[in-house]
Amino acid sequence: MSKAFNEFIRGITKDNPIFALVLGLCPALAVTTSVNNAIGMSAGTAFVLVGANLMVSALRNHIPSTVRLPIFILIIATFVSIVDMVMEAYTPSLYAALGVFIPLIVVNCIIIGRAEAYANKNNMFYSLIDALGIATGFLLALVTIGGIRELLGTGQIVVFGQMIVNIPMITPASYMILPPGAFLTIGILMAIINHRRAKKLARGE
């Protein structure tokens, strides 16, 4: 059981998709204008990640290795189509806010990366754990970026219609929810994390 737990934690820390593997940056920058969008995007990605990891792991002994990538992409595209239709039907406002990025989950490098690097070699149970861990890491990263941008850009954080934080500011830095804010936020966060990692390595050796 402890191995399973370690695999789960690994997805959040050592193999964090955004800050450690640097995969799937497009959605991390584009839809993190608010915490709400970040959560919606992570939920969609998590569903596809879990579904694709389970499916690839279940079929791993039947997929010929020469054509494995097209098969992975078709499996992923199937799950993305499901998410696309479900979100359009049940959460239309979220669907409108995320726009083209829901169908673009299909080309999110995280998912095909996990299918190739993990699910293709491990059994279904560990593939599920791996998918859950990576999805949680993705969620935490997106919510962090989205939280910083929404707080600095509008002075408040609203999640599902509930006001969580409200700091009255005279002039919110509205450029934080525009594209430059995304690059600034992720650049500074990555710099901090890499600096800490370098210090840790220096102390370890």
Partner: peptide, 12 residues
């Protein structure tokens, strides 16, 4: 690349 954030992997 810089407005819609599409294709950032190759950008970096």
């Amino acid at each position: 690349l810089i407005i819609q954030f599409l294709g950032l992997c190759s950008f970096l």
